[in-house]
Computed example of a mutant assay.
Amino acid sequence: MSSLFELSKLANVQALYINVRGLFRDAQLAEADLDARVLVAEASGYEPKNLALHYDEGVSAQAHAKISKYVEQRLAGKPVGRILGKREFWGLEFSLSAATLEPRPDTETLIEATLAFCQAHGGLDKPWVFADIGTGTGAVAIALLSELPNAVCVAVDVSEEALQTARQNAANNDVLKRFLTVCGSYLDPLARSFDFVVSNPPYIRSAVIEGLSHEVKQHDPMLALDGGVDGLTAYKELIGNAKRVLKTNSALLMEIGFDQANELINLTRELVGLEVRCERDLAGQPRVVVVVFP
């Protein structure tokens, strides 16, 4: 079995990676191999995807010190994104803060669904005006702005700290001039001027929060997780008030929990009398609901 002490003895990148991977596998981490590759690459100054190209290279004392610290934190339950203070999403890099969730791969389904809507209603080059509710790191809005060159986004969040993080991420990804922030709750600060609204709202039922993993409970902000008793608090706000801020022939696109599709279909019929289209993620689970407002 590998140990933290042994990491300082390893001569090259390949040996370091294999030993860190062994530590993570022994700890039964869900993504042991990926976590090891990302952390060893960061400590060594390489891109994770190119780590194998540097297997024969030596490991500096500085890199040994970094990886030992990273491994200790990861084994204590700290997520990789929190260790590094950043996370990749849609091929872009996003800084994290205590007030933001880590962008997750499943949310890329929301980007795909939104781009499909745009392509079908005027094309990607159209001067879209859209809102991102609960923007957090700004990942959803910034990913969309990177694909919609003439679009402008108004990003809303109740946390000024989150908005500060989002503005920095917008600047780092060269879209700050088209990324406007407003501190407020849901759609309250907005008026009728939007072609579409996107959101990855809190959707976990309050009673389920206690059963979440240590990594989530200790490192993700509860405001971004807790969706109320039924997990639908945010959806009721968004669906019920969307028409007030949307133009005609517009859309509300929202990420949902894997088991919420039927509830969202019924809720949308009840609140606004409209049908919902569900888009599935790579695992085949319903992940995004699209509500088109005529």
Rank of each mutant, 00 (worst) to 15 (best):
S159H: 10
F117W: 15
G45H: 07
G257S: 11
D230W: 11
G211Y: 10
K236S: 01
E93P: 03
E263C: 06
Y46N: 13
S250W: 00
Q62M: 11
Q62L: 12
V80Y: 01
I265F: 01
P189K: 05
G284V: 11
A116H: 09
I67F: 06
E88A: 14
S146H: 13
A11V: 10
A15I: 03
L124Q: 09
A11R: 13
D33E: 15
S97F: 11
S146V: 05
E161G: 10
V292H: 03
V291Y: 01
E215Q: 13
K236C: 02
D281V: 08
L212E: 11
V175T: 11
V20W: 01
N266A: 14
T181I: 14
L84G: 03
K66S: 11
L180P: 00
D281A: 08
F130L: 04
V158G: 00
V13A: 10
L223K: 13
W90Q: 11
L29I: 13
V288G: 09
L23V: 05
A41I: 08
R280V: 00
Y70L: 05
A171H: 14
S185W: 11
C118F: 02
G240V: 04
A120G: 00
L16Q: 03
E108G: 14
L10E: 04
P294L: 05
L39N: 05
Q28S: 15
T165E: 06
G91S: 13
T114I: 08
D132L: 11
I83Y: 01
L75M: 08
P201V: 06
D230Y: 11
A76Y: 01
P189Q: 10
S44D: 07
F196E: 02
A171I: 12
N249M: 10
V71L: 06
K69W: 06
R269C: 03
K69P: 00
F194H: 06
F130G: 00
F94S: 02
G228S: 10
L23Q: 03
H64S: 06
L39M: 15
Y186M: 15
G257E: 08
Q164T: 15
N150P: 04
T114F: 04
